[in-house]
Design a protein around this nucleic acid. Structure first.
Lengths: 227, 227
DNA sequence: GGCAAACTATATCGCTTGATATAAATCTTA
DNA sequence: TAAGATTTATATCAAGCGATATAGTTTGCC
């Protein structure tokens, strides 16, 4: 298992740097092209290493893909994950509908912010969304540690807003749709931007209309409430 | 251009049948695997023809892909397309918000029904959604003749519901999100079903929770209205 | 029957892919 | 400096890809 050659002597640092370069290049190329279309040669070239380096550090293409998934999960947990725990604790203590509403808005804000963290953030989002639709080798990890927790906390907050003790099927569905709409807006962002542009709207290509989408979602949250 | 050898003698009917079999097999395999991952060999095998038959009828892989796109558009136009024209005419004549609301519900109902027309309907949906996110060779056709008209009529109906003369940026955005949520629910259907199942909900695998999703969307439409 | 047109199948080409055998380079340690 | 572990690069393999040259088969028409 060469992927955890960690606590060794200082010159092996160069090796770890190469490993990190490969991982970063892989994240970008897998995120853009998907598992099947991405080639190990292109990744190696982008990372500035030769082809067998991938085998040396990650065994094979799938190993590299899984390493990318774990990297994404780690980044997610250190960002949104902690906040989710915080919200869960608050829910445990009991929340008013109004409080739940503002928590939910913040959750969705942070979820959408994931796609704007840095330059490659949207590629990581693409990685996750592709894996959710195509269910490749990294699906289980991403579903269990990333997708499910986000939707579940959303469902619980919605239930709270609607005055229910625990989320029923309707709350779960509404949570799914909320995340689905944000996801789809991300993955079809070029199309959405084109549509808005054709209609004469000017959306900043920087944030890709994501904040506008967020406004719509917040309005939806505002309209939630006791039936 | 051998793809329109149509008005010839009767025995060429067999040829047309082969052409149709190739097209159907291609729709299923392209819809499931996408352009890059699908192979002409597998399509030929599924259609029960030999490999050069694809070249004979569709010139090459991309020609076959485009033929699939046009087939999808044709099917869409004879279904939803006519209804969109009908709604557009009604809008021209002036609609009350309540009328617009029920038209909008019917539009979304028909859009979601597209994924349940027949056994291969979800594969066609997958074809379209993949092309919207990856922007392959068939993007222009599908956007112009299928995606844009559906979103636009939705935006106009939303504007009408909200008492506006013509759709502003907010209406366009809301229309986009409405379709995005339905699309994402379709393309991540296995994930959504798993989530609901894990939560103890029983969703019919037949319709894949789409009618439940539609219920949520109708509730959203009901909550629209003058600010 | 024979002939031209429409259609189909076999076999193969050139290319790219993931993987890896092999050997060289680098650096620590003794 | 010699030994040895760690890391890197060259060259190559078998498999699968899209494409197609070539030849065979069917079938309506005269």
């Amino acid at each position: 298992m060469p992927s955890q050659a960690s606590l060794t002597s200082p010159p092996q640092v160069r090796g770890q740097e190469a490993q990190a370069r490969i991982l970063q290049a892989a994240l970008r190329i897998f995120g853009r092209d998907g598992f099947a279309l991405a080639t190990t040669r292109r990744i190696a070239e982008a990372a500035g290493v030769s082809l067998p380096a991938i085998k040396y550090y990650f065994e094979n293409k799938e190993g590299l893909y899984m390493a990318c998934a774990h990297e994404i999960v780690a980044r997610y947990e250190e960002g949104l994950g902690n906040y989710i725990d915080e919200v869960a604790a608050a829910l445990e203590g009991g929340l008013s509908p109004a409080q739940a509403r503002s928590y939910l808005k913040e959750v969705m804000r942070r979820v959408s912010a994931i796609s704007n963290d840095d330059a490659d953030a949207d590629l990581r989002t693409g990685f996750v969304l592709r894996e959710m639709t195509e269910q490749g080798p990294a699906f289980e990890v991403l579903y269990k540690d990333l997708w499910q927790p986000g939707v579940e906390i959303t469902a619980q907050l919605i239930a709270c807003i609607e005055g229910k003790a625990s989320p029923d099927e309707a709350a779960h569905l509404e949570a799914l749709m909320l995340h689905a709409s944000l996801s789809a807006f991300s993955s079809t962002r070029p199309v959405s931007l084109r549509y808005l542009r054709d209609g004469g709207c000017k959306a900043s290509p920087r944030e890709g209309g994501l904040t506008s989408a967020l406004t719509v979602i917040e309005a939806q949250i505002d309209r939630m409430g006791p039936a």
